[in-house]
Amino acid sequence: MTGLRIEGLSYEHRLRDAHLTARPGETVGLIGPNGSGKTTLLRCVYGTLAPTAGRALLDGADLRALGPKARARRVATVPQDSAVDFELTVRELVALGRSPHKRFWEGDTAADRDRADAALARVGLADLADRPYPTLSGGERQRALVARALVQEPELLVLDEPTNHLDIRHQIDVLGLVRTLGTTTLLAIHDLNLAAAHCDRLYVLESGRVVTGGTPAEVLTPELLAAVYGVEADVVPHPRTGTPTVLYLPSPPGDQKTSSI
């Protein structure tokens, strides 16, 4: 299995000298306020941005140097923008995940369609395979995109806010699904409790810098939450699972504390 190592990755002023690692099979979460550089970091990894400095190495291979197609054979991405024009069916969209493994003029074979169906079954969308993708709900779309990433058979899975716009049930489903894949995974995520429950380790970004990293219990402390997010919170073990759980306090009237940048 494959590990990711990010060395001094920078993009203009939005991401500065980021260092992090994801060990083989690990699920690593990026947390941080809006505009802290999570998406920028992910884009530099999956290749829609060219880093201005530093490297992202997958098993020692510089992802930037691989080029789009070779990179797509190793890194599967569930991007934030999942709009699809025109009515591709769900199965057709998922089967496009085979593209990096095919010559551009090759069509889908029966094996490709079987693979797509298997992936759809795995994400619980088997019944919707023939539906036009634009008619799916947000949660269904997100799971279809995870299915597309599955047929890519990647060594690294990158997800940008995979739980955005989903109701809580689907948030838990999508993250639980990602966990069961066993693939090395890097994801940006807003919800700290979901991050704590589903990630092996977390990195915290603030103003384009990685300020700290470690297990959820090491990272999620009242001091960090106050410093990075500007909120007052208690962190307690979940009564049944023991994972760190953040309990926010309403800010007192008149106290408009913001980030400590």
Binding site: Y46, G47, T48, P68, K69, A70, R71, A72, R73, V75, A76, T77, P79, D81, S82, A83, V84, D85, L96, G97, S99, P100, Q152
Partner: peptide, 9 residues
């Protein structure tokens, strides 16, 4: 989309 197409190679 452009991003979707790029991440698929």
């Amino acid at each position: 989309g452009d991003e979707g197409a790029t991440v698929l190679g």
